[in-house]
């Protein structure tokens, strides 16, 4: 099972980064970034299959594909901005983390706007 590999990887990386932090603090951040990316790349296969299944479901239900695509985009943007914000928070830069999250929220809002407008149009049409 992958979970054992991932937990083992995470624990060894934490121990290594704690050891190195005493001598050279900046290498601790490098190790945490590398571990985060490696764990994500280990899981990316499963994530791709989940996304494919969701796409097949939407095709079956004839839901417009644009909505699902923008939902995937929003998930991607949320994940990347969360990744960056956590890395900055780990290294103690709280304000940079907040700025990254703020930018991520704005971008997600931009992507979610079309869906919002289409819902509002639908509601307006329903009202006699």
């Amino acid at each position: 099972m992958e979970i054992f590999k991932i937990v083992g990887l995470g624990i060894t990386a934490t121990i290594l980064s704690v050891i190195i932090k005493q001598y050279k603090p900046e290498y601790g951040i490098h190790i945490s970034i590398a571990t985060g990316v490696i764990i994500f790349l280990l899981i990316v296969g499963k994530l791709a299959s989940i996304l494919k299944v969701m796409e097949q479901l939407t095709n079956k239900m004839e839901i417009d594909l644009i909505y699902v695509k923008s939902i995937f985009k929003i998930i991607g943007i949320a994940y990347i901005s969360e990744f960056g914000a956590q890395v900055c928070r780990d290294s103690g830069e709280e304000s940079i983390a907040l700025k990254i999250e703020f930018a991520g929220k704005i971008l997600i809002m931009v992507l979610a706007l079309p869906i919002l407008l289409s819902v509002l149009n639908l509601i307006v049409k329903l009202i006699p």
């Binding site: 791709a48 996304l51 985009k73 991607g76 994940y79």
Partner: peptide
């Protein structure tokens, strides 16, 4: 990482 996320989520 960024290229993987870009191709998977079609960003």
């Amino acid at each position: 990482l960024f290229s993987t996320v870009r191709t998977m989520f079609e960003i």
